Amino acid sequence: MNKLYVIFLFLISLYSSYSQHSNLKHQVYFETDKFDVNETEYSRLLAFLYDIENLDIEKVSIYGFTDDRGSDDYNLILSQQRADAIKTVFSNNEFDESVITNVDGKGEVLLKVVKQEDIHKVRGLNRKVEIIVQPFNPPRKLEAPKEKLTTEEKLKGKLKAGDRIKLENILFKTGYSILLPESIKTLEDISNILVERKDVYFTIQGHVCCTMGSRDAIDRKTKKRNLSVARAKYIYDYMAKKGVSKRRMKFVGMRRNFPLGGEPKFDRRVEILVTYAEDKD
């Protein structure tokens, strides 16, 4: 009986160790009585978001803390404001809010007995938000919705005003209007088709995912809240350089007005809306 009990405890310990090992953690530190994220911590947080952007995440917990100074009520409010501030950064940078399961202010971290000269340092480390990311383990197998026709086939076919064509395999770096290298060849092929389709006029529509409401996301490069516009303009500029007449195309940012309802990464997309197509029949 004792042997079984020991084995049981060992398995629980092993599971706990494995679970903790699979989680990723990040701390964001704050100045005294502040809940806004300073530039240094913001850059560190963006680097962390970049590290986890390709993970299949099950849930994220965000916990805010303060140092031991201030009343209990004040510290609870401030710690919650800090946690909320971090959630806002996640949202502004196209992170799927649906996996954020906890955004809680925990109040003060009690000051343990330390040397007098270490008090300021310890208090600084207690003014923080702790982020815990738990990926699916093993990762799930996710597939994009399959289209009957490829983007190239649709653009070569019969088009009419009102047709909306999603540019498949046009993938952007999360939070940026920079196209991933593997998407350049696809965009080049699409541009070459549209150079020849002089009978078609269209608007390039940029979309983002995961922001609160229908707001646009923040472009991490420019710090402006116009990421959907920036992505549409990137496609517009590329096509113009490849020879597509600027008279035949416009670009616009759609913010997060038209989510697809599936995996968030599929909302980071660019579509072409045909505004005029010459009837050749």
Score class of each variant (00 low, 15 high):
Arg127Thr: 04
Met212Cys: 00
Arg69Tyr: 07
Glu97Val: 08
Glu278Met: 13
Glu58Asn: 13
Gln27Ala: 15
Lys156Asp: 06
Thr203Arg: 06
Asp56Lys: 06
Gly124Glu: 03
Asp199Tyr: 09
Ser13Ile: 07
Phe35Cys: 03
Asp237Pro: 01
Asp84Leu: 05
Arg255Ala: 15
Lys115Leu: 14
Asp118Ile: 07
Lys156Phe: 05
Arg164Ala: 12
Leu142Cys: 06
Leu24Trp: 08
Tyr42Asn: 11
Pro139Ala: 05
Val114Cys: 09
Glu196Val: 04
Ser71Glu: 10
Ala144Phe: 01
Gln116Ser: 13
Arg255Met: 11
Lys106Pro: 01
Glu196Met: 07
Lys250His: 13
Tyr29Val: 08
Tyr201Thr: 10
Arg220Leu: 12
Glu188Ile: 05
Lys3Asn: 14
Tyr15Asp: 10
Glu58Val: 02
Asn126Cys: 07
Lys115Arg: 14
Leu111Asn: 08
Leu167Ala: 05
Phe10Ser: 14
Pro135Gln: 04
Arg247Asn: 15
Arg269Cys: 10
Ile57His: 08
Ile77Phe: 09
Gly243Gln: 06
Pro264Met: 09
Val129Gly: 01
Val195Ser: 04
Leu4Gly: 13
Ile132Asp: 14
Lys280Cys: 03
Ala85Trp: 08
Lys146Gln: 11
Lys156Gln: 10
Thr222Pro: 00
Lys223Asp: 11
Leu227Met: 09
Ser43Glu: 15
Val129Met: 07
Ile119Val: 15
Gly107Leu: 03
Gly262Arg: 09
Leu11Arg: 03
Glu31Val: 06
Tyr276Val: 07
Val200Arg: 01
Met239Cys: 06
Gln205Leu: 14
Leu187Ile: 01
Ile77Ala: 13
Ile272Arg: 03
Thr101Phe: 07
